[in-house]
Design a protein around this nucleic acid. Structure first.
Lengths: 146, 146
DNA sequence: AACACTTCTTAGCCTAGACTAACTTTCGGA
DNA sequence: TCCGAAAGTTAGTCTAGGCTAAGAAGTGTT
C-alpha cells in the first residue's frame, strides 16, 4: 500500500510544481505533433485542419499558433499553411516518439488500440524519461518490436 | 508502428476534447485527494497546509477552494479548516484508489518508488477505466497484492 | 485583557486557452 | 474576370489558475 504516510510538504510541492510545468508544455507538444503529422501525411498543415482535429475554433488556433510562434516552434506565412522551426521539428519528433512508445506499451499491457491512443494522449505528457525507459525495457523483454 | 495514418478528424477531435475535460477535473481531484489525506493523517486540513503542499500561494488556495465549494465538493468553516462533502469524499476516494493503483503499477513495471509517485501524479488523471482495469489485471497476474 | 503572530481573505493583476461575431483575404469556378 | 465560398484574422468576452500586497480575523501567551 503506497503512501501510508504523507510525503514531506517540500517533496509534494515539488511534484505538483513539476506537474504544472508539464501541463503547460502539453499544448505546445500536441500542436507541433499534429502539425508534423499533417505535413508528413498531407503535405501541408492548415489552420483550419488543426482546428478540426483539435476540436477547437479557428480563432483558438490563431491564438495558440501565435504563442507557438512567439516561442520559436512554428513559422507562418499568412494565408499559407504552418511550418515548424528546427526546434519545433525536434519537439514534434520527441513527442511522436513518446506517443508511439506509450501506445505500444499500453497495448502490451492489455489495452485495445483505440483506448491506448486515447489514453496515450494524456499520459505521454506526464511520463518521465525514467518511465519511458522502463516502458521500452518492458517492451523489449517481451520481444515486442512492433 | 502505431499511427501509420492519421485518425479521422472527428475521432482525433473527440480525443482532444475528452483530454481537455480530464485536465479540468485534475485540479479538483488533486485538491480533494490532498484534503482527504490531511484529514486522515493530521485530523484537519488547513488552507495554509494545502498551499504548502500544493506549492502555491494561500490566495490561490482560497480561490481554488471557492471553486470546489461552488461545485459542491468542499465545505469551509472560516478559520476552521476544510471539510469534504459526500461528493468530495467520494471523489477523493476514487482519486486515491486510482493514484495508488497507478503507483503500484509503475513500480511493477520497473520504476523506483519516487519516480512512480511523481509520474502517477500526472498519469492518474489520464488513465481511463479500461486502462486501470488493465493495470489491475497486470498486477494480479504478477501476484502483486502489495 | 492585550498584543503579536498566524491564518485567511480581498483586491488587483497576469497568462493560457477557450468562445462568438464580424471582418479581410485568397482562390477557384462560371 | 469577378465573385462567392473558404480560410484566416481581429476584437471582445469568459474561466481557470497563478501571483503579490495589504488588510482583517482568529489564537495563544503573558
Amino acid at each position: 500500500m503506497p503512501r501510508r504516510t504523507l510525503p514531506t510538504a517540500e517533496d509534494q510541492a515539488a511534484r505538483f510544481v513539476r506537474q504544472r510545468e508539464a501541463d503547460r508544455k502539453a499544448t505546445a507538444e500536441d500542436y507541433v505533433e499534429l502539425i508534423a503529422d499533417l505535413l508528413r501525411e498531407e503535405g501541408e498543415a492548415r489552420a483550419v485542419d488543426l482546428a478540426r482535429r483539435m476540436g477547437v475554433s479557428q480563432a483558438t488556433v490563431t491564438a495558440t499558433v501565435g504563442r507557438l510562434q512567439r516561442d520559436g516552434l512554428v513559422e507562418t506565412k499568412p494565408y499559407r499553411g504552418l511550418f515548424l522551426t528546427a526546434a519545433g521539428t525536434a519537439l514534434a519528433a520527441e513527442a511522436k516518439a513518446r506517443h508511439d512508445l506509450v501506445v505500444r506499451f499500453l497495448i502490451a499491457v492489455g489495452l485495445d488500440a483505440g483506448t491506448a491512443e486515447q489514453d496515450a494522449e494524456g499520459i505521454e505528457h506526464h511520463a518521465s524519461d525514467k518511465a519511458l525507459t522502463a516502458f521500452a525495457r518492458f517492451l523489449s523483454e517481451r520481444g515486442d518490436t512492433t
